[in-house]
Amino acid sequence: MALVSADTKIAELLTELHQLIKQTQEERSRSEHNLLNIQKTHERMQTENKTSPYYRTKLRGLYTTAKADAEAECSILRHALDKIAEIKSLLEERRIAAKMAGVYSDSDPPRKTMRRGVLMTLLQQSAMTLPLWIGKPGESPPPLCGAIPASSDYVAKQGDKVAARVKAVDGDEQWILAEVVSYSHSTNKYEVDDIDEEGKERHTLSRRRIIPLPQWKANPETDPEALFSKDQLVLALYPQTTCFYRALIHTPPHRPQDDYSVLFEDTSYADGYSPPLNVAQRYVVACKENKKK
């Protein structure tokens, strides 16, 4: 029943989102008119070649309206973004619930595990649809936006993706992509699932072995300080795998949808680093300097 109600809720939200998008367009056409007015006034002032008090007042009025229009449009857009976030979180809730219940939502006969290629596609898709953080003027990006780490007392929620340091069968330590199952406040330990279902392993790990992944992309155009900079040491998900490895930032992204280009530490190359490979913002986290080096 819970699933059904989530469905109707999502349908409602989608309708609202649709409305909001239409409103945006209305708002936009309205401000268009005013912007045109401003432009015309400027032109007229230029031809008359003087700034009379009349124009000054007129322009001030026009600009005030334009600013209000822009703010109204902006607030609708933010509202729409909130709706999208809400839909995504409902979907996520549903996914977790289904996972808990051991139900496959897919109508096709269940496979024991997802094909790895499909898993990779899903991971890429989740990186692509990670929301971009859009702050109000003067607002600085919050923790878990881009390179900004979570606060020290932050506890990752159930279903959140994290980089988790686990002991592999051969005793080597490895950073893997995992999903949080629970957190115990009494022991300060996380329970996480390996994202790769083939692993089917559940790990219990202390806080320091967990690095939450960013929840927003940082916009390189407005918040470049929230990105890792060139030559910084990071942990990055090696393309087409579910493991994080140490890497140096080769080039940070230039546009919001761009990936980092990183050089993985790789002894099989003469200079000790792989050729530049692309990794999405979602899968690049700070590397806690480890002792051996």
């Binding site: 897919d106 997802m114 094909r115 290629g117 499909v118 596609t121 899903l122 890429q124 898709q125």
Partner: peptide, 16 residues
């Protein structure tokens, strides 16, 4: 719809 959503968990290995 987006291409990726077409790839269900049962998509053939060589589909992409």
């Amino acid at each position: 719809g987006p291409e990726t959503s077409l790839l269900s968990a049962n998509a053939a290995r060589d589909e992409t």
